[in-house]
């Protein structure tokens, strides 16, 4: 039997984590969770997930942003695909671009919140399968 794909969810909204964990597990994934960037990085190194789903705004407004750069700079993590989520809409003019870019926003995919578990699953399947 094929081993289950492992996804690390990093978000400070407990409901978002809970809901998506239940949903994605029902679709055959193994879910690891973390509620802030620091915990997320630690769990990423420990578990070597197949994909990381990362929220931008956690304790600090750019926490997820910093985490994504750390992931790319870490030899152990830099090949793991990252889906970045944010509730900030583009017109709010933040000092970073929303287009994935190796240096500036080194993530695989950028998605806006709110996002339904089904939609998130579709995006995950595009990357992991």
């Amino acid at each position: 039997m094929q081993q289950k794909k492992r996804i690390l969810l990093i978000d400070d909204d407990a409901d978002f984590i809970y809901l998506n964990k239940v949903f994605l597990e029902s679709k055959g994934y193994r879910i690891i969770t973390a509620y802030n960037g620091e915990e997320g990085l630690k769990k990423a190194i420990e578990n070597k997930p197949d994909l990381i789903v990362l929220d931008v705004m956690m304790t600090r407004i750019t926490e997820g942003f910093d985490v994504s750069r750390k992931i790319r700079m870490d030899e152990r993590l830099k090949t793991i695909p990252v889906i970045m989520l944010t509730g900030i809409r583009k017109k709010e003019r933040l000092p970073w671009t929303f287009e994935p870019d190796d240096n500036w926003l080194p993530v695989t995919k950028f998605l806006e919140k709110p996002i339904s578990p089904q939609k998130l699953l579709k995006e995950i399947e595009k990357i992991v399968k």
């Binding site: 409901d15 809901l19 709110p114 339904s116």
Partner: peptide, 30 residues
């Protein structure tokens, strides 16, 4: 944001994705 969370919870419950009584209960509480 909360509406999307609420919708998500109701969706997984109604579609029978969660079957465990305790899990259903905790979701409805959320």
């Amino acid at each position: 944001s909360p509406l999307s969370i609420i919708e998500g919870y109701l969706d997984v419950v109604l579609k029978g994705i969660v079957k465990d009584e305790n899990q259903i209960k905790s979701m409805i509480e959320r």
